[in-house]
């Protein structure tokens, strides 16, 4: 039996509930990142599969980036695993563990998350802490890391419509060093709309810091359709 896997109320954060067993969903994520002199577009396709009541598998066969200067680039594929430990309604906090492995030519990346969520009636409060480790170039000699905290709040206006806010705080460590003290903060609103077998969620984020390598503005859309 196949059905809808689940709705995303946020686009830069993951939520604690996992997909029901047997469900299959295609999720398309498009991110537009803008700064005065450049524009990048990131496109990811994910096949999301509910394996058990607590375990979810995600396969990313397509991951593309379009740079305004460098053109189109294929970033390889990725595998994502999410395991749910507790429920955000009946337990004090809903907790899930997340691991994503991305592999491409001369590139390997690991992304580990702790997802914490609490539902208060029509409110969803969500918190993610993420550790990213990246190896690239010939022989995977270049290394970098990133620690990210993200907080989101979403209010359900009706069972079909939610609005909310997302807040990201990033600490970037080139070569796993903190000499440059790179700190980025992004904040912005989101809206999510869902119907019987599909949903769409959009977030607009502005940079609250002044890091020149990071976008001033990001717009991310996640469109999911169940089979």
């Amino acid at each position: 039996m196949c059905a809808f896997a689940g709705v995303r109320h946020f686009t830069f954060l993951y939520e604690a509930p996992t997909s029901p067993p047997g469900s299959v969903e295609l999720e398309n994520t498009i991110t537009w990142a803008h700064r005065a002199n450049w524009n990048d577009v990131f496109i990811r396709e994910e096949l999301e599969i509910g394996v058990t009541d607590r375990f979810q598998l995600g396969i990313y066969p397509l991951d593309w980036t379009h740079h305004s200067e460098g053109g189109l680039q294929y970033n390889g594929g990725a595998l994502e695993l999410i395991y749910n430990l507790s429920n955000p309604v009946v337990d004090p906090v809903g907790i899930s563990l997340y691991e994503e492995i991305s592999v491409a030519r001369q590139h390997f990346e690991s992304e580990s998350k702790l997802i914490a969520q609490k539902n208060f009636g029509r409110w969803i409060l969500d918190y993610n802490t993420t550790l990213e480790a990246e190896w690239e170039s010939k022989g995977l000699e270049e290394q970098s890391g990133e620690l990210q905290q993200a907080l989101g709040a979403s209010y359900e206006i009706s069972p079909r419509l939610s609005v909310g806010l997302e807040f990201l705080h990033e600490l970037v460590f080139p070569d796993w060093r903190d000499e440059e003290k790179i700190r980025n903060v992004f904040v912005g609103p989101n809206v999510s709309y869902r119907r019987q077998s599909w949903f769409v969620t959009v977030t607009a984020l502005a940079q609250a810091t002044d890091t020149t390598d990071e976008p001033d503005f990001q717009l991310r859309t996640v469109f999911g359709i169940g089979f």
Partner: peptide, 13 residues
């Protein structure tokens, strides 16, 4: 009820 319904929406009273 508490696992499947919240995958798409919050629980109504």
């Amino acid at each position: 009820f508490v696992h499947r319904c919240i995958e798409c929406h919050t629980l109504p009273a």
